[in-house]
Nucleic acid binder design. Structure first.
Lengths: 356, 356
DNA sequence: TTGAAAGCGCTAACAG
DNA sequence: CTGTTAGCGCTTTCAA
């Protein structure tokens, strides 16, 4: 039988399905499916014939049928507190690229840090719209009652960035894999660096303190003081958010202190940019009057005036590993490591180093 | 019949389906489906009974079954050239929020501006993994042959940001809706402003010139000159990209010109940040030696030194309208407008205005 | 190696 | 208002 795409037969056939293709070739749908998905289970001739016809007729597998049958969607949900945050969007981009390479697509959900919204996105997995979930938050996006319920088998999931501790999370005695950096250590390094530059009063602008990364970084701040034998002045700890605004406003606040600190450590670069702005506005020289450090090493960090000392997070690797582990879980392949702590790097620039 | 969640009956039932729920209540699956999805088509008692049992047993609709039956996934694909770009990620965030409110999820694809990748994401719609698609590029994410093929009915789609012209795109005589700003006019306003500040030699760093927004903004540059009776010096037009790097590097190039321009207009704020950086490095004062303007008004623009003159794009509205129109298309509701040109706003800051 | 047939979970058409 | 039944498009036994 000659295949002719332009034959009147197909003129009004707007969507061609597996049945049409099978009928057209005079074979069974099973063979079409096999030829396309399990080429090795089919004769070479069959494979070629089917492939050719599929191309010519523009056949596209309806994944709804396929997914229903196999219970696999090739979708992943990623729940992020803020999609527009510069650090996050770097990770997002890497996750997407890695997933795409493996044939997966990602549903990105912006939770705004609200637990109810996290669970709303978690529901996508329960509803079988996705095969697994990545979450940037302290808890999995499922109700507590569900997690402990006997008739719930936890879906593939990976925790990242906001990882509760080095032990990570456990559900019914199984480890939830995570990928993160050592926030406490990184923070300690920054603060140690500041202390070594001669600062004894280092203010810190934190993220919201119900976020694990913020509490861990704050812990690092304390640890650095302890190791250097310096007391921590609690009045120099300012709870903020990972935003420009927080940096701008809290710095204004800090500058009004009678006993002003000589350095400000912002737990995120966007915050540090806000901080630098206020300092410049009020005529303070950085780092001569006040040194400033950030965290994340977003791509803007080296372009500030002066360039910002910060901690480089392995953004690309972070996203990549999350996805790789999640896909392994989904495809029931063994995973090498379930607790991944990636290396960070203290990047010292001029915002903390006085030029002689 | 008394419902008891903790009855041994359900102890090992890890996933409860519509049949289980129906059997449990002694009713048909049709009634369960109706009670949950079309409450008004069912008696009040039925509705309550089903709802309660569903809650107690933790029933979650398997959307794969539902989608296969209804041919509706409640997913949308958005194809973006760069997910980590600050302007884009603002739009993304707004799209996601709007979609979530309407019960849709978004699959974000990063095309890197590569046509093959755009089509790869477009395939998600053909494969029925999504109900419609938003694309930030000159052409729909489908092969040309498909678009003109008689047996192809174009899926719901909306074009945004990179819109080819005010006529937009047409497939088989049907308009593809778009949402954008008037790039040419906005650009003209920036350049006019620069000229009115006394600049007669304004360099421009463009985006890649196969992007509609970049050619439109370049057109605005020419138009401003024309209206002001100034010649366009083609040697002041530098093709770049919408990146920090392009700004940094091309500015270095521009500074080597024998007949240096007194103003640089960057077609994107990230580029302008790179430009400001190089100027500062090389000791040029902004705006006194060289004025700089950007485009987008990303949230960092007001924090630069000096704060950046730029064009504010209605980021949130852009994302919102795209999604609203796409969902109307998907749900076959009439759309008010299919050619949406949103207002922009020239934001004049100190990077172009010399202080007296 | 290929085909026939069952069925994934759900909803819609039709009947009662 | 509710139940029965068919079937969405695909993959996977099972049998030939």
């Amino acid at each position: 039988m000659v295949v002719n795409v332009y034959s009147p037969l197909f003129t009004h056939m707007s969507e061609i399905g597996i049945k049409d293709l099978a009928k057209h070739l005079g074979i069974s749908t099973a063979s079409v499916s096999r030829a396309l998905n399990r080429p090795q289970r089919v004769s070479e001739g069959m494979r070629e014939r089917v492939q050719k016809a599929a191309d010519q007729l523009g056949y596209r597998t309806n994944m709804l049928g396929s997914s229903l049958r196999t219970s696999r969607t090739r979708n992943i949900v990623a729940i992020i507190p803020d999609l527009s945050d510069t650090f996050n969007s770097g990770v997002i981009r890497s996750m997407e690229a890695t997933a795409a390479k493996a044939g997966y697509s990602i549903l990105f959900g912006d939770s705004q840090g609200i637990r109810a919204r996290e669970m709303q996105y978690g529901r996508l997995v329960q509803q079988k719209q996705a095969d697994g979930v990545i979450f940037f938050s302290a808890q999995p996006p499922f109700e507590e009652s569900l997690l402990t319920s006997e008739n719930f088998s936890p879906p593939p999931m990976v925790s990242s960035c906001e990882v509760i501790s080095k032990e990570g999370l456990t559900i019914k005695n199984t480890q939830i894999p995570y990928v993160t950096i050592d926030n406490e250590l990184a923070s300690e390094e920054v603060v140690t660096h500041l202390i070594e530059q001669g600062h004894t009063r280092v203010a810190i602008i934190t993220g919201t303190l119900n976020s694990p990364s913020a509490t861990q970084r704050l812990e690092g701040y304390r640890e650095a003081h302890k190791k250097k034998g310096l007391p921590v002045d609690e009045s120099l700890i300012f709870e903020g958010e990972y935003t420009l605004d927080a940096g701008e406003n809290l710095t204004r606040h800090i500058l009004q202190l009678r006993d002003r600190p000589t350095a400000i450590f912002c737990m995120c670069d966007e915050t540090a940019l806000g901080c630098l702005y206020t300092l410049r506005q009020q005529g303070f020289a950085v780092p001569d009057d006040i040194a400033v450090a950030g965290f994340d090493d977003i791509r803007f960090a080296m372009y500030t005036d002066p360039p910002l000392t910060t901690v480089a997070q392995p953004v690309t690797e972070l996203g990549k590993r999350c996805i790789e582990i999640l896909i392994s879980l989904i495809e029931k392949r063994p995973i090498e490591e379930s607790k991944v702590i990636l290396p960070h790097r203290l990047v010292i620039r001029e915002s903390t180093v006085v030029q002689k």
